[in-house]
Design a binder for these strands. Sequence first.
DNA 1: ATTATGACTGCAG
DNA 2: TCTGCAGCCATAA
Length: 115
Amino acid sequence: MSSSKQPAPSSHLVILEAVKRVPCGRVATYGLIAKVAGLDGQPRLVGYALRHATDEVPWHRVVNAQGRISPRADPACIPLQRTLLESEGVEFGLGERIDLRRYLWKPRLRRTDED
DNA sequence: ATTATGACTGCAG
DNA sequence: TCTGCAGCCATAA
């Protein structure tokens, strides 16, 4: 194998790219994003990456495995995220919960395929 | 170099 | 339904 220098892409980069793949009207869990990003089993890294995320990334489409908005440093973002999702057609149930059975994004695990 | 914390998850009680 | 514990990696001090 060629001993090329592996730039060792920051996990954040692939994570942000994975989040960008989430289609409108759909939501993804941290674990799912981690898996798509090749970091299967490290959902915490997704949270860290999203913290560095910008408007270029649909961070609002990322929720926890409970279908709820995870508590973050800025509580003002909670109603914002909920509003953004509702504007995309995602319904919230009681307890501010989302039905993942219906709105969870199902990525195709294919190489030559994008969303 | 080490320690503590975090936008998480899964399982047990 | 909720709470607590352990595991994983990156960032900050």
